[in-house]
């Protein structure tokens, strides 16, 4: 069997970045198997988005059935299963997102095949060998995956995506194939039935240029006032470690790490945070890390670019005061 099918997530006519990453890895695997790269798009706008896929994709299978407009993991997986039953590819790929992992796990469960989540690299052979993330990427596993159709999700932020090609004359577009899968009612039971707007008024931690993070060293919910002040002066947002969310000092939505948010600001200021691996996986994409910690041997020093050794309750207010002093002296 040859070729690769990629489940492509899209919204508002745009392909999600995780899916571009999956398409990029998929293209190299398809070539290694000597088969085509194909895509599957489901839901509103699938047609339009499919037409915009690069020329690396030979066929885009599009499902426009109204009953599959709302996300329904089991039914969407059913559509993929029907497609791969008729012409099994060597592999099916999806992005390592909530939906990518969920849909592919349904495909795996229904077809009794193994699945490897969050792979970072794959080598086509007999059997296929792959490297995948454990512990959210703090640890890597080398493994083999022996199956007729390999089911893989691609770890986010790992595969570099080439710039989308300019729409040059002569560049080919994928063939659009309308796919009309049978839809089974029980598969529609778990489906999105409504949307709620995000809580208003917060600078998103994942978009902020500067994040000031607090850990156990902050000592209390009130202790975050000085971190809020510094973040405010820098136009940034405040986050924290799991210790501070478990203690109820901050809401869980502020948690950075394996079971919280992944952030990628220009600067992350880690105050009173030891640097446990589960925290670091959430902030290692920051361009620069400044640690403020009383302990010069804390593990955070192994990943920080800059550090101030000292009590954050003194250091953080002193930084804010210095920013204000310079602003005032400029008039």
């Amino acid at each position: 069997m040859s070729g690769v099918l990629v489940f492509v997530e899209h919204a508002g006519g745009e392909i999600e970045r995780v899916s571009r990453e999956a398409l990029t890895l998929g293209a190299s695997l398809a070539a290694a198997t000597g088969g085509p790269l194909e895509a599957m798009l489901i839901g509103p706008g699938a047609d339009r988005t499919a037409a915009a896929l690069g020329s690396g994709v030979s066929t885009a299978h599009v499902v426009s059935d109204d009953r599959l407009h709302a996300y329904a993991p089991a039914a969407w997986a059913g559509a993929i299963v029907q497609l791969i039953e008729t012409r099994p590819p060597a592999a099916v790929l999806a992005g390592g997102s909530d939906r990518g992992n969920e849909v592919l796990a349904h495909v795996a469960a229904r077809t009794a095949r193994p699945m490897a989540a969050n792979v970072v690299s794959v080598s086509v052979g007999d059997p296929w060998r792959l490297t995948r993330q454990r512990w959210a990427g703090s640890l890597l596993e080398d493994a083999t995956l022996d199956a007729d159709v390999r089911l893989l999700t691609v770890a986010p932020h790992v595969v570099p995506v080439p710039e989308p090609e300019v729409d040059a004359a002569g560049s080919t577009r994928p063939t659009i194939a309308q796919s009309q899968p049978a839809v089974h009612e029980p598969d529609l039971v778990a489906r999105v039935i409504g949307h709620e707007a995000p809580e208003a008024g917060t600078i998103s931690l994942t978009d902020a240029r500067v994040v000031v993070g607090g850990g156990r060293g902050v000592g209390s919910g009130e202790g975050f006032a000085t971190l809020e002040e510094l973040a405010g002066l820098l136009g940034g947002a405040v986050g924290g470690s799991r210790v501070v969310t478990s203690a109820g000092w901050r809401p869980h939505s502020d948690q950075i790490g394996q079971t919280g948010l992944r952030i990628a600001p220009e600067l992350y200021v880690a105050c009173g945070i030891s640097g446990a691996i589960q925290h670091i996986v959430g902030c290692k994409a920051a361009k620069r890390i400044l640690a403020i910690n009383t302990d010069p041997d804390a593990p955070i020093m192994g990943v920080a670019d800059y550090a101030v050794i000292g009590d954050l309750h003194q250091v953080v207010p002193a930084i804010s005061a210095e920013i204000r002093r310079r602003a005032a002296s400029r008039g």
């Binding site: 193994p114 490897a116 060998r129 792959l130 995948r132 454990r134 990427g137 703090s138 640890l139 890597l140 596993e141 080398d142 493994a143 083999t144 995956l145 022996d146 199956a147 290692k284 890390i289 400044l290 640690a291 010069p296 020093m301 192994g302 990943v303 920080a304 670019d305 800059y306 550090a307 101030v308 050794i309 000292g310």
Partner: peptide, 22 residues
């Protein structure tokens, strides 16, 4: 499967921390 062959740590980013002060 997947059948584990072994585990390894990702390559270190290898940053050297610059102490700004105390």
């Amino acid at each position: 499967g997947p059948v584990k062959l072994g585990l390894r740590l990702p390559a270190e980013q290898g940053s050297q921390v610059e102490i700004l002060g105390r």
